[in-house]
C-alpha cells in the first residue's frame, strides 16, 4: 500500500486516505475538436511501465486533488505537486532524469 505526500496539507498519508484519478495532464477537448482529438482525450492513456504522472485526491483529508510522478514498476515516488498546472514542475523532471537516465521524458 502506497504512501504519498499531499502537497496541499503537507501530510504523508497512506493510500486508504486517497482516491486515485488516473493519468495526469490530460488536455480536454470540447466542441469544435475532431473525433481523433476527442478520442485521444477521452480514451487514450499512456499506461507506462516506469515513470507515470497521475492524479490523486486526498479524499479523506483536505479533499484536494494533487499530482504525482511515480514509477509503476518499483513504486518509487519522485514527487507530488498541486493540480493547478498543465505540466510537471521543471525541478521534478530534472530529478526524474537524474534517477532514471534512460527515461524518455514527460511528453
Amino acid at each position: 500500500m502506497l504512501t504519498l505526500t499531499c502537497p496541499c496539507c503537507g501530510v504523508t498519508v497512506e493510500e486508504t486516505e486517497l482516491a486515485p484519478g488516473g493519468e495526469a495532464h490530460l488536455k480536454r477537448f470540447g466542441p469544435g475538436s475532431t473525433d481523433e482529438e476527442f478520442e485521444t482525450y477521452m480514451f487514450a492513456r499512456k499506461n507506462p511501465k516506469g515513470v507515470h504522472f497521475e492524479r490523486w485526491r486526498h479524499a479523506y483529508g483536505c479533499g484536494k486533488w494533487f499530482l504525482t510522478a511515480r514509477c509503476t514498476a518499483t513504486l518509487e515516488v519522485f514527487g507530488s505537486y498541486p493540480a493547478q498546472t498543465t505540466e510537471p514542475p521543471a525541478e521534478l523532471i530534472a530529478k526524474i532524469k537524474e534517477k532514471r537516465p534512460g527515461w524518455e521524458g514527460y511528453k
Binding site: 485526491r57 479533499g63 486533488w65 493547478q84
Partner: peptide
C-alpha cells in the same frame, strides 16, 4: 460534489 471539485480544482482552477 467530488465531480464538481474535480473540474474546479483540475481544469478551471
Amino acid at each position: 460534489h467530488g465531480h464538481m471539485e474535480d473540474w474546479l480544482q483540475c481544469e478551471w482552477w
